[in-house]
Simulated assay, not measured.
Amino acid sequence: MDQFAINIIVLGKSGVGKSSFCNYLFDQAGLFETGSGKPVTSWEKNFQSHTFEHQGHLLNVFDSVGLEADNYERWLKQFDSFMQQRRARPMEPETWIHGAFYVINASSARLEPVDVNLIKRLGQDARIPLQVILTNADVAGDKVEALQREIHHLCPGVSVTPLCSVSVRRRGGQSTQAFGRDEVLSLYLEQSHAFLSKRLAAMSCLNFKGVLREMRNTVVAKIEQADLSIFRIADLDLDTEIELPDFDEVFSDLKGFDDYLSSFGFVGDWETSDELENAVTRVFDDFQGEMESRFKEIEDGFESDSLLRKVGALYEAAKIILTLKSTMIEWLDEGFGRVHAALDQLFIKYAEDDNFFASHLKGCVLIRPKLFGIF
């Protein structure tokens, strides 16, 4: 099985220590070029990535040009283009952006409107895991707590992690050790697992619906092509007349929720997998029970002492026989429709207010639209 990389973007104004943070976080001394308050990532290298391995996970880290007053419009245009490209294939999770680090220099003790705007765009609009990293936390003193309070006030729910990315020996023999790396990575992987679990579960609902839709169309085509005339009803062998597809083969290309999580290096042990399978199985079992009850009711009618019930049973049986094709298709659509409705409810639960799949949903072709709540 191919291993997918977790895609991370690193953003922030020039001179806040993005490159030093990346070198420290991913233990890659010198790979990310550092400078002294000046832009070191060129526009040609904007949003280019470096790949690392950490605790069994592949990490793709996309570095960015530092934000400055005179490049904001250009930077924002490239950022929006980059994010749009990463949303272009919503059914391919390896192309998504899975999280972001927004870096602020804690010693500056300033949270500017551009910072707040981008933090909100990432956390609230893009709905991806986000950590605000406060660099130079070793020398910032009380400014760190003040910045944390301000960020939590203006951007509720955003995680803020103080960090020092370099060890420094100061006058008098004192030294400052780098800190924060383990806290940042541990929290990020926890956030990433939760994020991927929900979004992959929503995607699995759509994948499942697509496979069921193809299966339904294949079975209906078989029914419509079959010779089910009333004159052959006594000799009719449906198994021979309607050769159904191999359902194992139909579902073989449907990559499971657990498989996707494993591809990103996470153990697929969340309840979501069982919830998806149980929901579909329960609907099919309930529908099968109802169908058996319908036929049992007709059978009981024929065996009844009541003439009225016998006539009613004969009428129901005749109606089924005379309209066998349309009846079979109607029952099929009813069963599949119920499964789709159950998947709709699960999709709403998993996606919540994340509109990431909106463009994909617009292109869905539905069998019977009135049965589907959201598509």
Rank of each mutant, 00 (worst) to 15 (best):
S159I: 14
S159H: 10
S159Q: 11
V160L: 09
V160K: 08
V160D: 06
V160E: 06
V160C: 11
T161Q: 11
T161G: 05
L163Q: 11
S165T: 09
S165P: 03
S165K: 02
V166D: 00
S167R: 14
V168C: 06
V168K: 08
R169V: 10
R169N: 08
R169L: 09
R169Y: 12
R170F: 07
G172Q: 05
G173Y: 11
G173R: 10
Q174N: 11
S175D: 09
S175R: 14
Q177K: 10
Q177D: 08
A178K: 13
F179E: 10
F179K: 07
G180R: 05
G180E: 06
R181S: 03
E183K: 10
V184R: 03
V184I: 15
L185F: 13
S186A: 12
S186D: 13
L187E: 13
Y188H: 06
L189C: 07
L189P: 03
L189R: 09
E190A: 12
Q191P: 05
S192D: 07
H193N: 01
A194T: 15
F195C: 06
F195P: 01
L196C: 10
L196K: 12
S197E: 14
S197H: 12
K198C: 14
R199S: 03
L200N: 01
L200F: 04
A201D: 01
A201I: 01
M203I: 00
M203N: 00
S204M: 03
C205F: 07
C205G: 13
L206A: 00
K209C: 06
G210D: 06
G210I: 04
V211F: 03
R213N: 14
R213I: 01
E214M: 00
M215C: 02
R216W: 02
R216Q: 06
N217W: 07
N217M: 11
N217C: 08
T218M: 15
T218Q: 15
V219N: 04
K222E: 15
I223S: 02
I223Q: 02
E224M: 14
E224T: 12
E224R: 14
Q225P: 05
Q225S: 13
Q225A: 14
A226N: 07
A226L: 03
D227V: 09
L228N: 02
S229D: 14
I230K: 04
I230D: 05
I230P: 00
F231H: 09
F231K: 07
R232K: 14
A234P: 00
A234K: 05
D235L: 11
D235R: 15
L236G: 01
D237G: 06
D237F: 05
L238N: 11
D239F: 09
D239P: 02
D239G: 11
T240E: 13
E241I: 08
I242R: 08
E243F: 10
E243Q: 15
L244W: 01
P245F: 03
F247A: 10
F247M: 14
D248W: 04
V250D: 08
